[in-house]
């Protein structure tokens, strides 16, 4: 149940004592431990931390790609831990845009078809789908590459197509898992600028996992995870190199 929401902005992701444990062989690994996190609408949060700190797990839990072993996670006021398989799929299509590190475009489909794909799950007519997909591609600056196949695009372009695919259904939340991890500096810059624009101009809530301090600086807030625990706002792990401010 959502409590009183702040007057300034609605909390759209709320976790309380969120815990995730994995059973690996005979011993248990704690990936997340008692995480309390509120993400308000319109925020751009970068989740940082060394590998194994649980940042990706948190992202997966927010996308209902995984189920918590303890605590609660509410997204848009709904307890996603309690939804059934098909309901989750529909919910994800409607409310979540997901961007992967390795782009994960469907290789047999063109950029346009990749972007159109999630719209095929909606009730939109062909004409409307076309229009939405075009708009999304224009937004990422690739309207001239619409009919190229993924292998004909550069990594940065692929990632921008993936972002277009993520936003085409106009989701409430954009979840990005190391979106620049496979990109060169220039492409990374383009992608991050794009995310920032989506946040600032279109009001998209962005939750981005990254281990690149430079990338993190595009976010408004940086939160750190260490050994499964979320550090208080503004606090970084002791051995963590403080990122230089973004130019």
């Amino acid at each position: 149940m959502s409590e009183a929401t702040g007057a300034a902005a609605e909390v759209i992701i709320r976790t309380r004592k969120l815990t995730k444990e994995f059973a690996r062989d005979s011993f248990r690994v704690v990936a997340l431990k008692d995480v309390d996190l509120d993400v308000k609408r319109g925020e751009f949060i970068a989740l940082m931390g060394p590998s194994g700190s649980g940042k990706s797990t948190l992202l997966h839990l927010a996308a209902a790609m995984d189920r918590p072993t303890g605590g609660t996670i509410e997204v848009l006021g709904q307890d996603i831990g309690a939804m059934g398989e098909s309901a989750v799929a529909r919910w994800r299509n409607r409310h979540i845009g997901f961007v992967f590190q390795s782009f994960n475009l469907i290789p047999v489909l063109t950029a346009f078809e990749n972007v159109e794909l999630p719209l095929k799950l909606t009730h939109l007519k062909k004409g409307e789908r076309d229009q939405h997909a075009r708009t999304a591609l224009r937004l990422v600056g690739l309207d001239d590459r619409m009919h190229h196949y993924p292998k004909q695009l550069s990594g940065g372009q692929e990632q921008r197509v993936a972002i277009a695919r993520a936003i085409v259904t106009d989701p409430d939340i954009l979840l990005c898992d190391e979106p620049t991890g496979n990109l060169d500096a220039k492409s990374a810059q383009e992608v991050l600028t794009l995310l920032k624009r989506l946040n600032e101009e279109y009001g998209k809530t962005v939750l981005m996992v990254t281990h690149d301090p430079h990338a993190a600086h595009f976010a408004r807030t940086i939160r750190y995870l260490d050994k499964g625990e979320l550090l208080p706002e503004g606090q970084a792990p002791e051995d963590w190199r403080t990122p230089e401010p973004h130019a």
Binding site: A63, M65, A89, R92, N104, L117, L121
Partner: peptide, 16 residues
């Protein structure tokens, strides 16, 4: 199989 994961992330159900 990986692509199946991607499709699921986009909101495709098991049945689809």
């Amino acid at each position: 199989v990986r692509e199946v994961g991607v499709l699921k992330t986009l909101g495709f159900t098991q049945e689809k």
